[in-house]
């Protein structure tokens, strides 16, 4: 009784947050039932007829769904790999700098794209990457043929990966730089006394020092295997690159909000949420096991 009275203010304090989350996060979760219905908005959840797994069967037989799933996996996995390797490499290079002002300046400049939305960046990229844009001027200056980065379906996925790395690598280096400053300087001293040069010091002191954080980031990125990046694709793609650039999330949007097939779109979304949930859970469990990582 005493405990309840003592803890009552905490319950009261957290109540508004609980209500908002209940309404706008848990009610939509319950709303996933429409994936198993032939949902008609005027009839609502309760009066729409049940469809069992018909919507899932329908999606399974859609001609484009296999390609979309493949595109999603291909783009997402390439982004995960490049998004891990590039920031590590850049962090190691930044770590070699001795002039603090120079290091700061570089860091500040490479963070910049992270904070801009894909609407703005797509506006910039559609100009810079166009056939007569500055990137193609550079390509032709070196004797190459102009590349249609945003209109050629063979190149588009790589444009997505490269521009995503361009946006995020600077911000992602922060984690590794923080880990690098945590390495005990006496280890370098010992390595030098043993005759290790800079390269060997990097190989045997620096890299092992950041391996735990690399493992952690790699593990957590497992949850992104179906996240090919809706904001980016939606703002950069066009019908001529649908064959390689269309991903699950953009398909959910088109089927759901443009074609108003609410139940089909929700079924596709449920499939994605379900797989993502499994992957994120596994990644958190692995991160907890191997890196002792906890969310809270």
């Amino acid at each position: 009784m005493g405990r309840l009275k003592r803890e009552f203010p905490y319950h009261l304090m957290i109540l508004p947050g609980v209500l908002f989350v209940l309404l706008y996060s848990y009610v939509p979760m319950a709303g996933l039932v429409i994936a198993f219905q032939n949902f008609v908005p005027v009839l609502g959840f309760s009066k729409s007829s049940w469809a069992g797994f018909d919507n899932f069967v329908y999606i399974y037989h859609l001609p484009s769904v296999g390609q979309v799933l493949w595109n999603t996996l291909f783009i997402a996995v390439m982004k995960i790999a490049a998004g891990l390797l590039v920031p590590i490499a850049v962090a190691l290079l930044l770590n070699e700098l001795r002039l603090v002002a120079f290091k700061r300046t570089v860091q500040t400049l490479i963070y910049l794209p992270h904070f801009l939305s894909w609407v703005i960046l797509a506006g910039i990229l559609s100009d810079v990457l166009s056939l007569d844009g500055i990137v193609n001027r550079l390509v032709t200056a070196f004797g190459g043929e102009p590349i249609y980065f945003l209109g050629d379906s063979r190149i588009f996925p790589f444009t997505l990966v490269a521009s995503d790395v361009w946006k995020e690598f600077g911000f992602a280096t922060i984690v590794y730089l923080a880990a690098l400053t945590g390495i005990d300087p006496s280890l370098y001293e010992a390595a030098r006394i043993d005759g290790a040069n800079r390269w060997r010091q990097t190989l045997y002191v620096t890299l092992p020092g950041i391996v735990p954080i690399i493992i952690l980031m790699a593990t957590l990125s497992l949850g992104n295997v179906l996240n090919a990046g809706f904001d980016q694709v939606f703002n950069l793609y066009n019908p001529s690159v649908y064959s390689t650039g269309d991903i699950i999330d953009t398909m959910i949007y088109r089927v759901g909000l443009q074609q108003s097939q609410f139940s089909v779109s929700t079924a596709l979304g449920l499939f994605k949420s379900f797989v993502s949930f499994a992957l994120i859970s596994i990644s958190y469990i692995l991160a907890y096991r191997f890196a002792n990582y906890r969310i809270f």
Binding site: V21, L23, S25, G31, I34, T266
Partner: peptide, 19 residues
Amino acid sequence: FFVATMLFHGGLIPTFLTV
């Protein structure tokens, strides 16, 4: 209760309908 919402979502259409 709160962290679960980071792991699992209702998705586009159910959220849209709730709004």
